[in-house]
Design a protein around this nucleic acid. Structure first.
Length: 205
DNA sequence: CTTTCGATCCGT
DNA sequence: CGGATCGAAAGG
């Protein structure tokens, strides 16, 4: 009988989250976002990210800490989830050390586990529409705003190593493409969006 | 207190 | 391309 592997946070990721947000945005591609609720587990591979930097007017933390963005100024590896457009939420991974407000927005996942739950929550049978957008993946995994501040190395909401599920060859990593960020009105031209080339689950090619 | 507007999604 | 929908944050 095969030994069942417990999903685990990639040890090498934490120093990177603390050190450099752009490198973190690249390194997060391929990692798995995993959420366990009373209904079961839903998980997907991260295929699209965006970096939000301190000196960047599009970054929520760029004008100093507020009640909403306080967690961005805390330790790395925590969840920052915010409410947007009156009806949606977006999920970020906090980066850098205490006092520095930066984060990586997770924009798209390739669905891996809990496809039935995702279909229910997203009210569609089309797998491509489960997690191909920042608010869509929050709905598909049923992530709540109250989970802001949770440590993504352990607990119900986790970041897992790329090898945690089949379908990722660390020896032959896919091409990473770079482009401008989406949905912002300032600093539009900065090349801070990263995505896996030729992946059908990215929100925009 | 009032106003503005947004790191989006969906149907047309 | 416009409508839905509401809280955070900036301004008076």
């Amino acid at each position: 009988m095969a030994k069942k592997r417990t999903p685990s946070f990639p040890k090498s990721l934490y120093p990177l989250l603390r050190a450099d947000t752009v490198e973190a945005a690249r390194a997060l591609l391929g990692c798995v976002l995993w959420h366990e609720t009373p209904q079961g587990v839903a998980a997907g591979r991260i295929v699209e990210t965006e970096a939000y930097l301190l000196d960047d007017p599009a970054c929520h933390a760029s004008r100093g800490p507020t009640p909403r963005t306080a967690v961005m100024f805390g330790p790395p590896g925590r969840a920052y989830i915010y409410f947007i457009y009156g009806m949606y939420h977006c999920f970020n991974v906090v980066t850098r050390g205490k006092g520095t407000g930066e984060a990586v927005l997770i924009r798209a996942l390739e669905p891996l586990e809990g496809l039935d739950l995702m279909a229910q929550r997203r009210k569609t049978e089309n797998i491509r529409n489960f997690c191909n957008g920042p608010a869509k993946l929050v709905l598909a995994l049923d992530i709540r705003k109250e989970q802001t501040g949770e440590d993504l190395r352990q607990g119900r909401l986790r970041l897992l190593a790329p090898g945690s599920y089949p379908g990722w060859n660390a020896r032959k990593p896919p091409l990473i493409k770079v482009g401008p960020r989406i949905g912002i009105s300032v600093a539009v031209d900065l090349p801070l969006r990263f995505y896996v080339a030729d992946n059908p689950f990215v929100s925009k090619a």
